[in-house]
């Protein structure tokens, strides 16, 4: 009986409290306000910056742990592109005899493979951000965008290692043969890599938001990325295609990136400012819409993952 009346009193005093609160305007300063839905573009970039140490730690974890307890260690980073290149040289070059525009086959395939792998890795890994990190996300808050950003960053490190392999092969052919003619487009390479990272990240976070609820898409992505490679001039030069096929393929933003890098380093391929402008715009749209969708999903994905 005693407890009952106490609760009753307490609830009464609570009511008067909240009543007086609503009379006065709420001009107190709050560090954090949690509401059911945030505004679409309410992305806290300052918070993201505050967590840059976490980004660094995630990148370190991804790089360091992959080859722990292996003998060859980081050398494995080279094995994959070398093997893939050899297989492509044998199958597409020697058996299928697809033209490489007079460029040494090894160089032609490797340039495409290294670039494409970076995109495919970034896309594939970021697209499962929510599902594969559910156990961490379910226990602690940090800006979720840190995870896809760290995936793209550690992918970048892996890419740069593989890219030096390409540069070594490139230097070898440049000195020993006169089959390749590099030109000033080579200087735009860092920007191309940035666009590649942006596309991988953008597509990845769009799909990550969808795969949390609809797992079907994970399967779509798995073979979709493989198929998309054939819609990109990796194993064939753009010049091999008919006019109409080329017109269709130029809608693929990655086609521009691959062709530009091949033109810059090898001297064949088609580089154009318009093409790069198109790719840049495409990347921005994908990134912005991806960030918006991601921002929405991260609030409630724990309920549906």
């Amino acid at each position: 009986m005693n407890q009952l009346s106490e609760t009753a009193q307490l609830s009464v005093s609570n009511e008067t409290n909240s009543g007086s609160d609503s009379d006065q305007p709420d001009n107190e300063h709050w560090d954090l306000v949690i509401r059911p839905k945030r505004h679409l573009l309410d992305i806290n970039f300052k918070e993201l910056w505050d967590y840059r140490d976490l980004l660094f730690m995630f990148v370190k974890r991804d790089i360091v742990t992959v080859y722990k307890q292996t003998v060859l260690g980081p050398i494995w980073f080279f094995v994959q592109p070398i093997m893939t290149t050899l297989v492509y040289v044998i199958i597409f070059g020697n058996i299928a005899k697809i033209s490489t525009d007079e460029i040494p086959k090894v160089l032609f395939y490797m340039s495409g493979i290294v670039m494409w792998n970076y995109f495919a890795d970034s896309f594939g890994k970021t697209s499962t951000t929510f599902t594969s990190n559910a156990s961490i996300f379910g226990k602690v808050y940090f800006p979720r965008l840190i995870v896809p950003l760290s995936v793209v960053t550690s992918g970048l490190i892996k890419f740069l290692i593989q890219f030096t392999l390409f540069l070594a092969v490139f230097a070898f052919y440049l000195i020993t043969t006169d089959l390749i003619q590099p030109n000033w487009w080579i200087l735009i390479t860092p920007y191309l890599i940035l666009l590649m990272a942006g596309l991988g990240l953008g597509f990845g976070i769009i799909f990550s938001s969808l795969t949390t609820k609809y797992r079907d898409l994970t399967f779509v992505i798995q073979f979709g990325v493989q198929l998309a490679m054939y819609a990109t001039p990796i194993i064939y030069p753009m010049s091999l295609l008919s006019e109409r096929a080329q017109a269709v393929l130029w809608w693929n933003p990655i086609a521009h990136l691959i062709e530009t890098i091949k033109y810059g380093f090898l001297g064949t391929g088609q580089a154009s400012v318009a093409g790069l402008a198109y790719t840049t715009a495409f990347t921005l749209v994908v990134l912005i819409s991806g960030t918006i969708i991601f921002n929405r999903t991260e609030q409630t994905f724990m309920d549906t993952v």
Partner: peptide
Amino acid sequence: KIISRITSPTTGSINIKGRIASLLEVGTG
């Protein structure tokens, strides 16, 4: 989970003053 921002509430609001840390598990990650 709602206070630690792991998931959003369906309705209502929470105002917080100060840095917040939640320990829903030790050794996360």
